[in-house]
């Protein structure tokens, strides 16, 4: 008899988003939703052995409630052999437009746990300047790196940040913030806590007459040979 452990399986890594209404669902709610969608799609998930068998599926770190995310990741071990494209099509039919899988690929069955592997989260803050004073804009652009990255309470939790000005609307800025999602042994870094940062940042921006329009999780990165790679780029 072939035990469940030896039966052929396929490990799929997939990326999905949650937006609109679904950003108000918690990580556990989305997890449950994905597991049910897999079941409806007839994609059998392998289960752990033991007293209370659980589906063998892992998810990347939770996104805070109310934050849109374009970069949720999951690794799932499926029964049988299945092609990644077919997987994507089948699961998307079972998901609402507010959550859809954007990429999927086969990975080695023994991969590093996603939760532990993710090193950096990239957030996009859309910011609006409520003044036409160009000097204020310039001051903001130059001070954000020094003050926020180098001197604030969050300096050890921010890996990097970039400011991009909207080409069409000069009052709109995009802050691309790379926050730590992992503690490094040598680094002396801290976890980037979005909710805490948001509270602080809102206040900090007042000085420049700037407000936050929206926040979105844009990408997650792992580190391979000193390079940032997305989870889809590694296996």
């Amino acid at each position: 008899m072939i035990s469940q452990k030896d039966a052929p399986g396929t490990k799929i890594r997939f990326k999905f988003y949650k937006k609109d209404e679904y950003k108000y669902l918690s990580h556990l709610d989305i997890t449950r939703m994905i597991i049910r969608a897999l079941k409806r799609a007839g994609l059998g998930v392998k289960r752990t052995l033991g007293y209370n068998p659980k589906p063998r599926i892992n998810f990347s770190l939770p996104t805070p409630l109310g934050i849109e995310s374009l970069a949720e990741y999951s690794d799932v071990l499926l029964d049988g052999v299945i092609d990644a494209d077919r997987f994507k099509k089948r699961i998307n039919l079972q998901l609402k437009p507010q959550t859809q899988v954007t990429q999927a690929k086969k990975t080695a069955v023994e991969t590093v746990n996603l939760m532990n592997d993710i090193a950096i989260s990239l957030y996009n803050f859309e910011l609006k300047l409520y003044s036409s004073d160009e000097r204020q804009a310039e001051r903001f652009c130059s001070e954000i790196k020094e003050n926020l990255k180098a001197e604030s309470d969050f300096s050890s939790s921010i890996f990097d940040l970039k400011i991009i000005r909207d080409l069409e609307n000069a009052n709109i800025f995009f802050l691309k913030l790379f926050g730590y999602a992992k503690i490094f042994k040598q680094g002396g870094n801290e976890f980037f806590k979005l909710n805490d940062f948001n509270r602080f940042f809102k206040d900090w921006l007042k000085d420049y007459n700037i407000g936050i329009v929206s926040v979105r999780k844009e990408e997650l990165f792992v580190i391979r040979e000193n390079m940032l790679k997305t989870p889809m780029e590694v296996s």
């Binding site: 679904y22 108000y24 709610d29 109310g66 079972q94 609402k96």
Partner: peptide, 16 residues
């Protein structure tokens, strides 16, 4: 309305 509300998922739609 959903800002700072406990379990905002109670008030949204689009369930299966």
């Amino acid at each position: 309305l959903l800002k700072d509300v406990e379990k905002p998922g109670r008030y949204i739609n689009n369930e299966v």
